[in-house]
Simulated scan of single mutants.
Amino acid sequence: MRLLVINPNTSQGITDRIGQAAQSAAQPGDRITTLSAAFGPELIVTPEDGMEAARGVVETIRSQPVLPDAIILASFGDTGAEDVRALWPDIPVIGIAEAAFESARQMGGPFAIVTFAPEVAPPLRDKAIEHGVGDQLIRVAAHPEALQGDPADVAEALFAELLTLCQTCKNDGAKAIVMGGGPLAGLAARIGPLCDVPVIDGTVEAVHQIRARINSHAPLSKTGAART
């Protein structure tokens, strides 16, 4: 499987984290390329950020010498998904929010989202509702301080605080936890064993789900298109 993973943010540090998470889900024969958007914000926060980032995502795909078998958009806004599907309708596309929330849906029961800053919490809640799992979502738990410094550093700098938030959500009744945001890619593998409930990494889930779709030739979600 030739898989192109695009970080719609332009932070190379976040892209590196996403790439490592994607590679952790690779199987023999997979060729996974992870790139930042060609241009745009370092971290998507506002709707305006998202529109600019979507244009950067499209330009990244256009610059590829060979189109991939599938594309993962590694932001929790699924940034650029509509544009990419319209321009390349034969290539399966999945966003990491779509993948994470589909995993939560399949597990059933209540779940929580844990994220790194209060300003990203409302969009994460909105995205859960958009993907049809708002009724299962009991809480979006965010680190209370606004993001400062390089967003690629938050997973390590806030590890203890994020672990505490996960444990609190579990105690509040969450049967699964979604790590919300590209900067937290790869963190689920470290927090999960310490939390006693499944901790979902959207990038890892996206790799698994897009592979299953390709192998089965199954239709994508209502927002996607199957590759034939």
Rank of each mutant, 00 (worst) to 15 (best):
G181N: 08
L184P: 07
I200S: 02
L158P: 02
P47E: 12
G182F: 05
G50D: 13
F159E: 15
A160Y: 10
G108H: 07
R211Q: 10
R55V: 00
P151A: 03
M51Q: 09
L35T: 00
E98M: 09
A141P: 06
A174H: 03
I18V: 14
L124A: 14
I177P: 01
A100P: 03
L73G: 01
L3A: 14
I91C: 02
T168A: 09
M1N: 07
G134V: 11
A38Y: 01
Q20S: 08
I32K: 01
I6N: 01
D69I: 00
K127W: 05
I96T: 09
D196F: 04
A152N: 06
P41A: 09
E119L: 06
A70P: 15
L137H: 14
E161P: 11
E42G: 11
A97H: 12
E48C: 06
A100H: 03
P28S: 04
D153I: 06
P47K: 13
I32C: 05
R213S: 15
E42K: 12
G95N: 08
P183G: 08
N7R: 03
S221G: 12
R17S: 04
E42L: 08
I94H: 13
E161A: 13
A81C: 08
Q20V: 11
G108Q: 04
V93E: 08
P198E: 07
V58Y: 01
A146L: 03
R125F: 13
M107R: 10
A86I: 03
I91K: 03
R190H: 13
D83Q: 07
D78Y: 06
A21W: 06
E52K: 09
I96K: 05
V178N: 04
E161S: 14
A160K: 14
C195D: 15
A226C: 02
G132I: 10
L163F: 12
Q148D: 11
A117I: 05
S103W: 07
S24R: 15
P123A: 09
A25R: 15
M51G: 02
A152C: 05
L165H: 10
S75K: 00
A81T: 12
D196S: 05
R31M: 11
I129S: 08
I94T: 15
E42R: 13
P193L: 13
G186I: 09
P144C: 09
V154S: 05
P47G: 14
R62C: 00
I94D: 12
A212D: 09
A146G: 02
V57D: 02
D153S: 06
I44E: 11
M179R: 04
I91P: 00
E52V: 13
I6E: 01
A112D: 01
E205Q: 09
L158K: 15
P92A: 07
A37L: 04
T168N: 05
I61D: 00
V45P: 10
E119Q: 11
E130R: 08
P122H: 13
M1H: 14
D153H: 12
V84C: 00
I94V: 15
F116G: 05
S221D: 12
A97I: 13
I138L: 15
G173Y: 13
M107C: 11
G77A: 07
I191C: 13
P92Q: 05
N171S: 03
L43R: 09
